[in-house]
Design a protein around this nucleic acid. Structure first.
Lengths: 204, 204, 204, 204
DNA sequence: CATGAATGAGGCTTCATTCAT
DNA sequence: AATGAATGAAGCCTCATTCAT
């Protein structure tokens, strides 16, 4: 790998790790450098500014995660299975360096930087589309098929994800999310029964 | 009103307005003082430090809004009506000095301050309970009555609210939220028909 | 005197003294603060920028000096006397905190700051006019009266002054200037004789 | 040409061009390298440090210009012609990569570096001598011959040149200099008439 | 109660310079 | 000979906070 690209990657990952560990407010040139074990000056050798580095880090991590999610959920038509896979993906996210926490911090900081805001907005769109597609697959063939204006529903799904993240962040209690997944399970089972029944509820 | 309390209130409101207008990053002792038309020093006369002021501002605004919401939604058992009232409340929120934007900024900043985090967490709980109660009223007497572990559902409602706020913040497009309310309308109508039918779907 | 104005004056004078002592390159927020015995932050309490402070210092010192020169030379019609008074003024300049050296440094730095450049240009104009007026008084009633397009001549006088400063700066040898004044003396005497002779050269 | 010497020359010229284009403040190792299309590191291969490069650049450009001036003015005994040739040389200077601007910037920076100051001083001397010689040729055979202590007059000529440069720099208006040359023309013509008359003024 | 001048720490960024390749 | 990544010091500026008035 070119030394240039390798160095950039080191910086991107130090930025992500710092965001996750210290929050946006604690993500300074110095703290990133400390995390990555390099001098603060290097940042400016590879990026125009801190904003530039953070933007690049956002793109870097978002691409990686989007690819994972697409592969894992791309062909899922079953609510129960969808839920199970989401649960796994989420657990995986939590272990990988804190990608999600980093992104969360960037959302939080968005009002500080127009460029960051624009970049985040550009990332929300594909995630909403992706969520909408997943939901469309679920709804297909049921009575709700025509009713769901899936664009808005996709956006709501992304919103819910963000909101849950935000709250989780507050107490650092990741089990809370486990408990939400558990809460959803019966609903997913019910849904699948309904959908398989051709869109009518099963007799109780 | 005691002059002391009046002065405090001036500070609290200046803090809220500054948070909404400049974001957390732009909320400094100086900018708050500029907004409120007083000297920066006053802040330290009434509060221990900036964190203290911000915490008090959070409590102040949250109490006021909670009272409004309780009065407006407290007795609502009808999904269509609930949606309509939420819509009104939201519009009202947007006009009142930016309470919501201010709170949003504080969520964003939460990772910077443990005390802030704790305070926000303490506010999420009652809002989740409140949302859960509203949902319980909706579900009562339907087939879903026993199924919904309403605590978690209440939390998801709050999460969704936060998430939608976050996204709205990104592009400043408040119409997007209007469009979500519109999206939900048919679902609310359908639900009411189902609920009034004693928990069975109406024949199509 | 208002504390505000007093503080500003302290800063202006510290800036002038630092410019004279350390040169433009050595005139940093820190060095100015060290010179004046205050914290670097104060500068930004009273001025927008370092540039702003330096501009204000230029105006401050230029006004003071212009007033002195006007008073001393305003009514001088005699070359010998003019020269003698210039000599005194110059000696005085050298003792007063280094106003001249400071201005010299700002000229030197002008290519670093468009605003500084504009300000200096605005100061050159009145000095050139002032020099032109002095020369016009000398020439009046002689054969050269109509010939001298005094605006340009005034500019040349200012240029010469600046250039001599620049060179003097190089070796710090102030006597060199004394020697120039001495060089000019016979020419001044000759001129006065010529002028008093109604514009014809005296017999040798 | 030895590759070594060729490389040095590239550096020298890049330094001159950068000084002229960006000013002393903008002349950094990086900006010089960018101008010349080489890596910043090369500078330290050929020179001890930046100061060393700048000093060498000063010598380089000064030698070249001095040779030009000597050739063009060396034998000129006529004020009118002297003026005309100076005008040409000056126009030529302006077109050649900005030698003059570069030197001007170095004068400006002189208080930052004792070595630079010494070097400039060493260059002023020969230029003053050169100017003195030119003036001596003009004065020869006139009534003023004995009066002019030409060393000081030479210095004043150099000073005036520098000062005019400084002022020109301020507004970037090169026509101003043209206008000064035009202003001097009648004086030169008058002088030549006087000198050719053997040192007495022509009858009017 | 309130003011506003002052402080000092710390943030971002640039730069001369070094050094492994 | 040349490259370009990396370093560490230092510059500008902002900010929470204090304190004399």
């Amino acid at each position: 790998m070119a030394p240039r690209a390798q160095a950039r990657k080191r910086l991107l990952e130090a930025a992500i790790r710092t965001l996750a560990a210290e929050g946006y407010g604690g993500t300074t040139a110095r703290s990133i450098a400390r995390t990555g074990g390099f001098a603060p000056g290097v940042i400016y050798y590879h990026f125009d500014d801190l904003e530039d580095l953070l933007l690049a880090a956002l793109r870097h991590t978002s691409e990686i995660r989007m690819a994972c999610y697409e592969e894992a959920l791309g062909s899922c038509t079953d609510a129960t299975e969808l839920l199970a896979r989401l649960r796994e993906l989420y657990a995986e996210d939590m272990q990988h360096e804190g990608h999600i926490d980093a992104v969360q911090e960037l959302f939080a900081a968005s009002s500080a930087s127009p460029r960051l805001r624009a970049e985040l907005l550009a990332h929300v769109e594909p995630w909403a589309d992706f969520a909408a597609a997943a939901i469309r697959r679920l709804v297909q063939g049921t009575a709700f098929e025509d009713m769901a204006p899936s664009r808005e529903i996709g956006l709501m799904a992304v919103a819910m994800f963000l909101g849950i993240q935000t709250i989780t962040h507050l107490d650092g209690d990741r089990d809370r999310i486990e408990s939400l997944f558990t809460t959803m399970e019966p609903a997913a089972i019910l849904w699948d029964a309904f959908a398989r029944g051709g869109g009518t509820f099963p007799d109780k």
